[in-house]
Amino acid sequence: MQQASDAISELDLNAYVDEQLDDWQRLRVEDHLARHPEAAARVMQDIRLRRELRLALAPAGTPTGAHRAGAAQLSRALRRDERIRRAIRLVPVGLLVVTGWLANEGFGPLSVGKVVASQAPPPVVSAALSAREASLVRLPMRSQPQASRLDPAELRAATGILLPRFDRDWTIRDAQVFPSPQGPGIEIVFDAGDLGRLTHFAVRTGSFAVTMPHVETHGRENVAWFQIGETAHVMIADRGDVASLLGIAEQLSSTLY
């Protein structure tokens, strides 16, 4: 009998997970997985993640009590975020300027510290900032090779990370697998027009979540983050405003559904 499984590639495995193969091709892949337990475990993990995303994002026919409770919690969070954004848009600019000045100067009950965030950033943000610092040191060095070609399928096969669809007008300066406390992550450095030097860092956190994009300022850089499934994504830009970066984060997150 011909050893059909020897011809199986990572692209075949990804197509198997995405249910893009016919019955004969699926048999070939399953024969390969029967001979390679490590590949089988990775494929089963990808299938589980795909099903979790499908269940989380698709409307349920007959929801259970747990599903209804989770949906209610997500609905409250979405309404809260929308109310906050609507309120911010309605606040007069002059009032924001005065309030910010009073808070910065430390007058009265408005006194706050130098850094105030509406939501505490997850640990992956620290890993992304460390990766960016390393990349900014590495890029000017002639002795450090840079990878300007991006192969999402190869990176997913090696790390299990699904990347979003980036803007085609962005220029890739470097793409590296970077270590982090959460495990191997992918850092990509772009020249992104009005956003300047933008880095995208993605890593599997080990826990499932669907988190709306958030953005805040760290020093002179704007940082946005969100999580879809088990993968968290962080973007850091050295130019532009927080609204522009938040819009980019929302666009990228929608390409992962």
Rank of each mutant, 00 (worst) to 15 (best):
G65H: 05
V93T: 09
R85Q: 03
A40R: 13
R35V: 04
L55Y: 12
V91Q: 12
L21P: 02
L95W: 05
D23V: 13
A69P: 06
R28G: 06
L33C: 02
L27P: 03
A34F: 06
L74D: 12
L27W: 10
L90N: 10
R28L: 11
L57Y: 11
L90K: 14
E19H: 08
H67K: 06
A87W: 08
D46Y: 08
L53G: 02
V29H: 01
A39M: 13
E82M: 05
H32G: 05
E19M: 04
L33K: 03
L95F: 07
V17F: 02
A66Y: 05
A34G: 08
L90T: 12
Q25I: 01
H67Q: 15
D22H: 04
A77F: 05
D31V: 10
D6N: 06
P37Q: 05
E82T: 09
D18Y: 03
R26M: 02
D81Q: 05
D31H: 14
G61L: 12
Q73E: 12
I8V: 07
P37T: 07
V91M: 14
L33S: 02
P92K: 07
W24V: 08
E10L: 11
E19R: 13
R26G: 00
G61W: 07
A15Y: 00
D6H: 10
P63L: 04
N14P: 12
G70R: 12
L74R: 14
D81S: 06
R76L: 13
P37R: 09
D12K: 00
L11M: 09
T62S: 13
D46N: 10
Q20P: 03
V29A: 00
A71D: 15
M44L: 15
V43M: 01
P59E: 09
E38S: 13
E38M: 11
D6Q: 14
Q20S: 03
L21K: 01
Q25A: 11
E38K: 12
Y16R: 00
D18F: 01
E30A: 00
L74Q: 15
D22Q: 05
I47P: 10
A34C: 12
L27C: 10
R54T: 13
G65T: 04
L57T: 08
T64C: 07
A15T: 02
Y16H: 07
M44R: 15
G94T: 12
A60T: 09
D18M: 03
D31Q: 13
E82L: 12
A87M: 14
E52S: 08
R76P: 06
R86L: 05
R80S: 12
P63Y: 04
H36S: 11
P37I: 03
A66T: 13
D22R: 08
D12R: 00
E19F: 06
D18P: 01
R83L: 15
R42K: 08
